[in-house]
Nucleic acid binder design. Sequence first.
DNA 1: TTGAAAGCGTTACCAC
DNA 2: GTGGTAACGCTTTCAA
Lengths: 338, 338
Amino acid sequence: MAGIADVAALAGVSKATASRALSGAGYVSQATRARVQDAATRLGYVPSTSAVSLATGRTQNIGVVMPYLNRWFFAEVLEGIQQALLERGLDLTLYDAKPGSPGRARIFDDFLARKRFDGLIAVGLEPVDREIDQLTLIGRPIVSVVGSGEQTSVVAVDDDLAARRATEHLIELGHRNIAFVGGSPRSHWAHVDQERLAGYRHAMRQAGLSQFVQHAHSEVTMPGGYAAAADLLGDARNRPTAIVGVCDEVAIGAMIAARRLGILVPSALSVVGIDDHEFAEMFALTTLRQVPREQGMAAVEVLLAEIDDPNRQRTHLRMPARLIMRTSTAPLSAPAGG
Amino acid sequence: MAGIADVAALAGVSKATASRALSGAGYVSQATRARVQDAATRLGYVPSTSAVSLATGRTQNIGVVMPYLNRWFFAEVLEGIQQALLERGLDLTLYDAKPGSPGRARIFDDFLARKRFDGLIAVGLEPVDREIDQLTLIGRPIVSVVGSGEQTSVVAVDDDLAARRATEHLIELGHRNIAFVGGSPRSHWAHVDQERLAGYRHAMRQAGLSQFVQHAHSEVTMPGGYAAAADLLGDARNRPTAIVGVCDEVAIGAMIAARRLGILVPSALSVVGIDDHEFAEMFALTTLRQVPREQGMAAVEVLLAEIDDPNRQRTHLRMPARLIMRTSTAPLSAPAGG
DNA sequence: TTGAAAGCGTTACCAC
DNA sequence: GTGGTAACGCTTTCAA
């Protein structure tokens, strides 16, 4: 493998000059620069990343920690991060830290401590106290996507607002008996779930519908929403006329459950989600759109700025979600009861 | 940051001894080893990965290239890989090489050439000729998950067999007019699609049903399957009584389309998929199960063996898929025609 | 504008 | 069993 010494030799200059010529830092005459670059391409020179890291203290690599890879939101964020890093020639090292798994402890104890990265993006991590300490102890800039994060910069959608808008949309359509499906005490989306639940509650209260507030717990997955909605809708006497899903996956699960029970959407049941999941269109789901891919890209932006200037002030980006109207919601049809 | 020199000093030994004591290679007395380890934990010593890489030539990192992150199969494989690496203390650097994207070229030209890894796992890559050359030029072991891969070791499901079994299952139920949905010429799953299509054709031919062979092209996604099936089923005169989906996502899309058209599954239409996707259960989809997570773990196994012994013979692992019967398939009901 | 040489933090060879 | 020391491949002063 050709090293910088070979390049220097071929170009007839010293290693120092070759290094400067290739990295673009420091004075080099146009002529020598050209000669060095020529030699480099000729030899197919590729700098050794470990040598560069050792000498500069920079890894040119960003770490990403997330609890799930196989969920729409996380995969999209990851793609956004990846794309933004790719454009800048930075590598991405992935850590899959499943909540409560033995592997998670190892990641925090060993992997992250290795500092194989110049900065870290934590997606939906919801770290417990000890983990937060470990993160800050790393001494590298950190940006959270989703999550409360007082300690780090944060990029996220305004969850409270999104849920409020979703609920208000249903209220405007004349619904009163509106249930919220999704989220459970032991969910690892805890923070997001709670923000959204709070938004729903807020909207209900403000409309004087506190008596109708109803929260059906569920796993935050499509099957989870299916199961929870099946329960919720099973009791015909006390059935809501509309559902706010904590996210599209849950909302779609609820729609499928409704169909199985012979409850027509939207004539007998309106459903609204939050996300604008890739399946939302297919299910004609009305939803509040967030674009996780953009959140991922924004997180990279913020992180790189902090790497550049470690004293930079923390950024807290909360993006608004936009209502996308499809046909899973409809005005409350002439009701049987009041 | 404490370096190995500090550890050595605190333990009262040389750097060389400290290194041996910590890495476990070479002779060190029990007593000194204990003393060194104690000093290390005391100082919170963490070796510099770049220094280690530079000295050993090993990065303790595995590269993973895949074209999509947001599809069930890929996400599952990635989780399997991640888990297997985690157990061994190895890092994972991710390269998201979308087919035809400008970024893809960069990945092959720049990123992979950096060799920031001891070995590479390529998932469903379908590389074009130039890319294959670039991969082999890296000079590191490579394992493909899915894909033709003559040049590398391969871990995959037996696609031909899976599709054949799926088709045979329908034939045994009395179906004759069986269509295959999924895959298109410009699909980037090309190889898998074709294997499965071939399996379907094979089974049809063997049962003397060649005249019924019908391939509805579609994107290999749930919405893709939906659209293709909507077309296919729209023409009531020439409608198949059963569908083989190239994968579960397509099959589920087809089921949803059927429902929209008022075609009951399974009484009026049987649908079988391949995958056992996380949604298969919820849709009661009969399918041929593959476990991508295990494929990912197996790929790691093979790769590490090849890293250990570069002269090792290539491995070609083709796992069989198992039929999981649910209720999306049923015997052909007393037919109107044919 | 260029070059010599000193790191960067490990490992590994070779004496002792 | 242990310690000195030369790599590993690059960047970065500091002189020239």
